[in-house]
Amino acid sequence: MTIKEKTKPKHLESEDLLQARTFAGDAWRQFRKHRLALVAIAVLAVIILGVVIGPLFWTLDPTYIDIVAAYQISSPEHPWGTDSLGRDTLARAMQGGRVSLMIGVSAMLVSISIGTIIGLLSGYFPRLDNPLMRITDIFIALPQLPLLLVLMMLFREPLKASFGVEGGVFILMVSVIGGLQWMPTARLVRGEVLTVKSREFITAANAVGSRDGRILRSHILPNVMSPVIVAATFSVAAAIITESALSFLGLGFPPDFPTWGRLLFDGKDYLTIIWTLVFWPGMLISLTVLCVNFIGDGLRDALDPRLRK
């Protein structure tokens, strides 16, 4: 301590310069420059708040059938219109949004966890590298969308029986989407681990006798987190799109349990009469994915010190 104070240059003593610049602070400063990412955060926040606490203010029951009010494009009582049974589209979009967002986040957690663990293991242990990367290659060669459709068709009934209709489809959706999207993360993490592993501080940690588990947890993992966070952001967007695509092809959630994709699927048959049925859920999917992608772009610039300006 005393040495540090002695060698401290005189001109650095003013208060603001002495304030430590943290990694997170630097990242935030860089992130703020990405104006579109800031807008995206605001829009996404509105969407999330809308679907989470929106139903407190918009109290119409999304399942309430009101035949008299059916086939409305927009009216004072139903600003987003109604479907062929008179159910309110706004209320249904709020209900569906919660599921769609939950699926996006949960599938991201599954795929990022699998990808990070496989990447860490194959990057760090040379003996595991080849077999794990072969498995990754095989998973990459599997045709994603067809396989997702097949898996949905196969396991929907058994899981429905054991976890209920919504729970079963939810668990299935999250595990198949997460289980088929981890490969890019695994490759990314492996590459990062390979470069970090050859650095001096890992040699030092080895020299003081740290165990492999400790080195992986406290030295390597924090150093590969930045690209993982960016990959996680993009993977939320990918998962939301995949869920919507599956539901859109009729292999997702059941009709009385609408996600945004399912609303699109149901709405496309009434395209000529009530276009709002397709427009609003589609807009919500697109806006959410767009915002998440912009945030991912901003994070990538912010978290990579080489890209900072």
Binding site: L36, S244, L264, W275, V278, F279, S286, V289, D297
Partner: peptide, 25 residues
Amino acid sequence: TFLMMIGFSVPTFFTGLMFIIIYSV
């Protein structure tokens, strides 16, 4: 780049349906 991001984010099933509404219906 803004348009690229939009084209990349908006799923084809939504653009497809919007095209049908606008150009067909």
